[in-house]
């Protein structure tokens, strides 16, 4: 599985994270999204005419949507992540995979506006981002009240992987994550999963690591 990847992209990170959690082997092809604009080059457009990242190639299959890529990686390497325990869980996973597009269109755009000077209606993006975070917070509260710790049920699924990165990176776009206690604990649960990997702006839980000993002279 070849992933056309950009280190600072939350949508690319989702794929790398799921691969790490499921043990899937990815071949990474770095795309110089910024400042090079390589995603608009003729060579890249020949792969994905839409000019978006991430892109996955596996044999003759080319996928250009992050939800589709997550579904493919899970189906191949970790079917439990599809969340097929019940019709309700499966539907929730589908709903959160679609919801993640709203996160990209709000928090994601606010973030590329603030970090990479991409044009955006920043006020509208932040307002929509706050609304998205409030919806995730309310959903997590309801899940907790019925005994579940994750977005789609009592165990992590693609729903969590799809919504986790933007929920943590919102401050990059000037959107505070301080007002959301359920999101705080949920993002800690995701970061505590065995095999979790970091991206710039999303660090591991230092409290789970042993106290470092003194550095030798």
């Amino acid at each position: 599985m070849i992933l056309y990847d950009y280190a600072l992209s939350p949508d690319c990170y989702k794929i790398r994270l799921l691969a790490a959690l499921t043990g899937a082997k990815l071949t990474l092809r770095a795309v110089d999204f910024h400042p090079g604009g390589e995603h608009r080059s003729p060579a890249f457009l020949a792969i994905n005419p839409g000019g978006t990242i991430p892109v996955m190639q596996d044999g003759t299959l080319t996928l250009t949507d992050s939800a589709a890529i997550l579904t493919f990686v899970a189906a191949k390497s970790g079917p439990a992540w599809l969340g097929d325990d019940s019709p309700e869980m499966r539907a929730r996973v589908a709903q959160w995979l679609a919801f993640a597009q709203r996160l990209s269109a709000s928090i994601g755009k606010a973030r590329t506006h603030d970090m990479l000077q991409k044009p955006a209606d920043i006020v509208a993006c932040r307002k929509a981002g706050v609304q998205c975070l409030r919806e995730i917070e309310a959903a997590l509260v309801e899940r907790h009240l019925t005994g579940d710790a994750f977005l789609a049920g009592n165990r992590p699924t693609l729903a969590d992987i799809a919504c986790f990165p933007h929920s943590m990176l919102a401050p990059d776009g000037g959107i505070s994550v301080d007002p959301y206690p359920a999101i705080r604990l949920w993002t800690r649960s995701v970061r505590a999963l065995p095999g979790f990997i970091e991206m710039p702006g999303i660090h591991r839980l230092h409290d789970l690591k042993p106290e470092p000993v003194g550095v030798p002279e």
Partner: peptide, 15 residues
């Protein structure tokens, strides 16, 4: 400032 259930052991939050 918070509900106790939102601050389990090993957690820090801004208030």
């Amino acid at each position: 400032v918070a509900l106790l259930r939102d601050l389990p052991p090993l957690v820090v939050m801004p208030v």
